[in-house]
Write a protein that binds this DNA or RNA. Sequence first.
RNA 1: GCGCCCUUAGCUCAGUUGGAUAGAGCAACAGCCUUCUAAGCUGUGGGUCGGUGGUUCGAAUCCACCAGGGCGCGCCA
Length: 635
Amino acid sequence: MPSTISVKRTFFQPIQRLAALYTSPHHRPHPPIRANTQTMNATDLYAHLRQTVLTALAQIIPDLPPDIAARVEVTPTRDPAHGDMATNAAMVSAKLARQPPAKIAAALVAALATAPEIEAAEAAGPGFVNLRLHPQTFRALLPIILANGEAYGDAATGAGTKINLEYVSANPTGPMHIGHCRGAVVGDALANLLTKAGYTVTKEYYINDAGAQVVALAWAAYWRYLQAIGTPLTEEEFAAEVPGGLQYKGDYLIPVGENLKATHGTSLATEHKGIAAPETWLDTVKDTTIAAMMTEVREDLRLLGVQQDIFTSERALVASGAADAVIAKLQADGLIYEGVLEPPKGKTPDDWEPRPQTLFRSTNFGDDVDRPLRKSDGSNTYFANDIAYHADKIGRGYDELIDVLGADHGGYVPRMKAAVKALSHDAVKFDAVLCQIVHILKGGVPLKMSKRAGSYVTLRDLLEEVGKDAVRFTMLTRKADAQMEFDLDQVLATTRENPVFYVQYAHARCRSVLRAAAEMFPGAALTDADLATTNVDTLDGEPELTLIRRLALWPRTVESAASAREPHRIAFFLYDLAADFHMLWNRGKDDATLRFLQADQPAATRARLVLVAATAVVIRSGLAVMGVTPVEEMR
RNA sequence: GCGCCCUUAGCUCAGUUGGAUAGAGCAACAGCCUUCUAAGCUGUGGGUCGGUGGUUCGAAUCCACCAGGGCGCGCCA
């Protein structure tokens, strides 16, 4: 199989494939490579230097194929001894050029020596080219940051790709609790992040208002209604009449019962205030109750700072016949059949009986088993309705669908992926972001949560206890797919252990310095726009440059976090940024001459204020992605 | 039994999508408060990246198998 001929074929094929991708509206893996013409307007210093390297590389290897060029990276170095940035360009192109990496690296070093941004370039290790930039190159970023404001870090990688992001989607059966909260925050921050990275994002909530749960909810509300009009029935007597038993016993349905009484008087009950025939009241009560619960949910979301664009009702979707229509469509494609599933190996349920079902051939698209679409009573499964919902989203013209789900829905992802693939003929991507469970700790002790007993921690309780910003930030201090302990005490702690505080404090300090500067230099023009024109050449200390290098990483952080769909990276970036800033600030404690504000050195002070203001801008830019409000001062 | 996720310092976790000598916080030890807010900062020690193989210039990262933890596995959504 391996032969000289096959080498040639694998050499040319990827080029054609990639060229085809560049013209497709759905796949734009990398921005087109073009000559490096602009220098001073680059907001992403790493992307800018990457273009510089590619230009230099093109001189050495004239017909560099795009797939090789796409692999060229310019990354920050881990070790300062390696300079500011390093590129793997020589190593990834060595095979193609049929030259050892070291030789290409040497040629690159020579070519890059003339670049105005670069102070020194040297070949190192297995073929890296290390770049040391002029401090001027980094400093030049500060006015750009101030001029761009919070838009600094915006990226074009999304290239307008239309993404539908579905999150929260809690059943409207009660107030939101802590379990919903993580998905809400992760989804919302991810939406902000993707938007910042250039995607066009629609934020959507799927109301699971069909099915048995909302019937149970309606019965529970009906009980509160009967209580409100003074029924002689006891709860036990009532519960005995409820199919499936009385659920949702929390107090939160009492107002709904009062409301039903106010609107309908006693007309929904029998003459003796007993249980009327369900068909006379069930739909009315269901409508009223779901509407009331969704009002609560929307209020919860508002308090959490979450605002979604579209709320789609499962009930409305089912009523429109969409589920049957989508099953018919799959049927026409030969993807539906009547069959009998094998029991799961090793764990057969006690009541297992082979049963013919309407099945979707999800195994054709990578799922493990085919999935049922109809229950034995002929009604649709949740999955069938959800396929219809995703078909609806596909019909709305999105390039990609992302669902933020609880980790217990992990097994659900492959079948939905299969369904989207089948329905869109592979044109639309489907992805899921799974959120693991959150344990609430109070004084180091886990809070038990029991929905049945009505003793669970509601989202609103949590918001009242610690506030929106702390909740949002803390929820983003872990990968979504990792279990998390949410310690109520630590979230409120004013120490470095608490990233919320630490980052907010950094921003407050920046603002505090700028306020103090306004007092020290009355009448000085100190807005970001004013400072953007300041000469910053005096910023040449190592801690200052370290901070500037961190600021330079922001656009790259946005891009990588967005493409990985990992908003938690923003929190970690901000923490690191805060640490760099606090370090700089603290130098002034040991040595008063190192403080930002020096009354006798207005020019040098002003340059430092540029750095302080730029730091504040980037912190705000990051907090905006997280949906956290920056604070002006700590009191 | 099968599938997905996870396993990194004593503890809680990062790790820039395969890069060079694996990083933070807490805890431990040694220092630092007349302030642009010490609500903090500096330094030291601490590692077989769960294990074993493989892929290649190069692996915590990709693949295979194994061990341990979590979640799920036909008419719940």
